[in-house]
Design a protein around this nucleic acid. Structure first.
Lengths: 159, 159
DNA sequence: TATTGTTATACTCTATAACTATA
DNA sequence: TATAGTTATAGAGTATAACAATA
């Protein structure tokens, strides 16, 4: 049944992925997962997942940022941020302070320990960026980031 | 720091995301999520999530592909594929046939209904690709896919 | 002994509803 | 009335261990 004539039940020797590889979404997702895999590995020593790093990095560069601003920026939902911030407080990385002009809100700030951790973590991130980026030339790197931003920073006219 | 004297408790008017936006992983993830958002919306009429589309597309272009091959190609775990295939069988989109040369394996094949659905779904995917790609020029589009593949198709020398 | 497919299950991530206090 | 933060909880997605059938 599989020797001479076209097999009624074919099998696959090598998987043809050419169609999927022609789709932007598929490629972007695969690339993101590839980088995140390395990220998970190297940030493990700091006890930080990618989302932890993103949140702490935003607090680092935006002292006093509120939970609401973090959620809007990172596309997270408020209930899912609460536990993260609580953990950061338990680890003495982040402090909640009353917002100077809005009694409902809490401003988020790094502690001294938080600053120290993020100095190391951002250095590691820079090394990772250099290693991953080494798969591309410097110009390609710049181009890639520019094109990716054109994809997701498009101002939606329809919605 | 903002108006006159350095505020003891600063607040944030506009969130500075410049640091995160310099990282490849962050940009790739944001771009992927942006495309997937549109994908979810347009594929809803077919009852297909991105991963469903990927699996059915691989079966379409690789009739007789096994679960093992699907998992390896898409980075999924076998237990998580079983339920998907069961659903596809219930919806009369996919059939399991005994593998011609390996009694342990099952080859996966589209039914007639599956072929019809995927013709429509791949047409929709092509339209989506055209619309998302319209944010970029044709040349940029080609470049973007090439660079993304250089990121995730790198042959790892270390591991 | 190793591999394919499967079951059961645990764990994480994401999403929804509702409450409080402040605006 | 609307918003920021929170709680509790449901649902989806992802992970590990173990088993039967076959290689």
């Amino acid at each position: 049944m599989s020797t001479r004539k076209p097999a009624a039940v074919p099998s696959v020797e090598e998987v043809d992925t050419s169609y999927l590889e022609s789709l932007i979404g598929y490629n972007a997702r695969r690339a993101a997962l590839s980088v995140i895999e390395v990220f998970l590995d190297r940030m493990a020593v700091y006890g930080l997942r990618p989302v932890d790093f993103s949140v702490l990095s935003l607090i680092t560069h935006n002292p006093g940022i509120t939970s609401r601003q973090l959620c809007t920026t990172l596309g997270m939902l408020p209930p899912n941020l609460v536990g993260m911030i609580n953990n950061f407080e338990k680890r003495d990385l982040v402090m909640r302070k009353p917002h100077p002009r809005d009694g409902r809100a809490m401003g988020l700030h790094l502690t001294a320990a938080g600053h120290k951790l993020m100095r190391d973590a951002e250095r590691t991130a820079a090394e990772l960026e250099r290693d991953v980026g080494a798969r591309l030339s410097a110009a390609e790197n710049k181009t890639l980031i520019r094109l990716l931003q054109k994809i997701y920073l498009h101002r939606t006219e329809t919605a």
